[in-house]
C-alpha cells in the first residue's frame, strides 16, 4: 500500500494527505471490538438458540456487570498513564466491611455508607503512594492488592458473612425489563463517556496520559486529575463490591478473586492503549459485552472452567498485541 505514496516534501505541514474517513473509522480499535462482538453473537446464535434471547444475555451480563463498571473507570486511569490492579481486592474488602458491620447490628444504610467510604479511602491510599510518593502505580497496586485482600481475610476469616434476606437480589430487580446492575452499568458508561469525550477534564486526561510533562507545562494539574481518578476507582469498586454482596447473598474474602484480570482485559479488548493517552469508554463498553458473550458462549458450550482461564489469559495477550499493532499503524 506504500507504493502509491510519494516521497515526503522537505517542508510543509500538509505533506501527508488526510486519510479517508472510512479508513479512520475502520482502523479504530473499537471498530474491531464491535466486529468481534457481532461475530460473537452470530457464532453464539449458531451454537445455541439461547443467544437470540436478549433477556438471557442480559441476565448473564449481571454476573459481569460489577467488574464491567469498574473497568470503565479503570479505562480512564489507564488513559491517564497509570494502572490500578487493586479494585478487585477493594471490592472484597469494602464488601467485607459492609457485611461485617451490618452483622454487628449497624443499620444497612450506615453500613453501606461506611463500605463506600472505605472504598474511597483505599483509592486515596493508592493515590497517596502513586502521586504523593511518586512510586510506580504497577508495583504500588500489587502491594495494595495483597493488603486489601489480606485485610478482607482478616475481617471475614474463612467464613462467609450472610446479608439480610431483603438486601439480596439486586440482579432480580428489573427496570423496564432490564436487570438493575445492567442499567447501572449503562448509566455509568454514559456519564463517564460524556466526561471523557466531551469535557475539558476528559481531554486533560488524554493529555496527561500522552505526555505528563507536556501536560504540566500546559498548566494541567496532572496530580489532581490522577487523584480524582484513583478516588473514583475506589468508590466505584466499593459500589461494585456491595452490589456483588447483594447478588450473591453472602460475602467471603475471596469475592471477586482474580477480577483484576477481567477488568484489565475489558479495557484492553476495548482498545485502550496500555501506555496511556488513547482509548475510549465506548470501547470498554463494547468489550464488556464481548467478554460476556464469549464467557457465556463457553459456558453454554460446556467448556471447562480451566479452559476458560486459558482463553481469558490468551485473549488478554492477543488483544494487547492487536491494539498496539493498530496504534503503531495509525500513528501520525
Amino acid at each position: 500500500m506504500s507504493t502509491l505514496e510519494t516521497p515526503a516534501p522537505t517542508s510543509g505541514h500538509d505533506a501527508a494527505p488526510a486519510r479517508p474517513r472510512w479508513q479512520v473509522v475502520l482502523v479504530r480499535p473499537e471498530t474491531m471490538t464491535l466486529i468481534l462482538l457481532i461475530l460473537g453473537i452470530f457464532a453464539g446464535g449458531l451454537l445455541s438458540p439461547f443467544f437470540l434471547d436478549i433477556s438471557y444475555i442480559l441476565r448473564s451480563f449481571t454476573l459481569y456487570s460489577e467488574f464491567a463498571m469498574v473497568a470503565l473507570v479503570l479505562t480512564m486511569v489507564i488513559i491517564a498513564g497509570e494502572i490500578d490492579l487493586s479494585p478487585a481486592a477493594n471490592m472484597a474488602l469494602s464488601a467485607c466491611i459492609f457485611a461485617w458491620l451490618q452483622q454487628a447490628g449497624v443499620p444497612i444504610p450506615a453500613a453501606v455508607a461506611v463500605g463506600l467510604a472505605s472504598g474511597l479511602a483505599m483509592g486515596a491510599l493508592n493515590a497517596f503512594m502513586v502521586i504523593g510518593l511518586q512510586l510506580p502505580s504497577i508495583i504500588v497496586t500489587i502491594g495494595t492488592l495483597t493488603l486489601y485482600r489480606g485485610l478482607a481475610q482478616v475481617i471475614a476469616g474463612d467464613k462467609s458473612i450472610r446479608v439480610p434476606e431483603w438486601f439480596i437480589g439486586i440482579d432480580k430487580i428489573m427496570v423496564a425489563g432490564i436487570p438493575l446492575p445492567v442499567v447501572l452499568f449503562v448509566v455509568v458508561a454514559l456519564v463517564l463517556g460524556i466526561v471523557l469525550g466531551g469535557t475539558i477534564f476528559g481531554r486533560q486526561i488524554y493529555q496527561v496520559g500522552t505526555s505528563e510533562v507536556a501536560a504540566r507545562h500546559a498548566g494541567i494539574r496532572a496530580a489532581r486529575i490522577k487523584l480524582v481518578l484513583f478516588l473514583l476507582v475506589g468508590l466505584v469498586a466499593a459500589t461494585a463490591g456491595i452490589m456483588t454482596a447483594s447478588r450473591l447473598g453472602s460475602v467471603r474474602y475471596d469475592l471477586g478473586l482474580g477480577g483484576e484480570l477481567q477488568m484489565v482485559l475489558m479495557a484492553m479488548l476495548g482498545g485502550t492503549y496500555i501506555f496511556g493517552g488513547r482509548g475510549t469508554i465506548l470501547g470498554t463498553f463494547l468489550a464488556a459485552w464481548l467478554l460476556v458473550i464469549v464467557s457465556t458462549g463457553m459456558i453454554v458450550a460446556n467448556v471447562l472452567p480451566a479452559v476458560q482461564l486459558v482463553v481469558l489469559g490468551a485473549l488478554l495477550i492477543v488483544s494487547i498485541i492487536a491494539t498496539n499493532f493498530i496504534y503503531s499503524r495509525t500513528q501520525r
Binding site: I83, L85, I138, G258, E260, L261, V264, M268, I274, F275, L304, P305, A306, V307, Q308, L309, V310, V311, L312, G313, A314, L315, L316, I317, I320, I321, N324
Partner: peptide
C-alpha cells in the same frame, strides 16, 4: 511476548498467570 511485541511485562504476565493456571487444570484433569 514481552520483548518481541514490546509489551509491558505486568500485563503479559497477568495474562500468562491465568493461562498457565488454566493449563495446570487441563493437564491434571483438575
Amino acid at each position: 511476548l514481552i520483548q518481541l511485541f514490546r509489551l509491558p511485562a505486568i500485563i503479559v504476565t497477568l495474562g500468562t498467570l491465568s493461562l498457565y493456571r488454566g493449563m495446570t487444570f487441563i493437564i491434571s484433569n483438575a
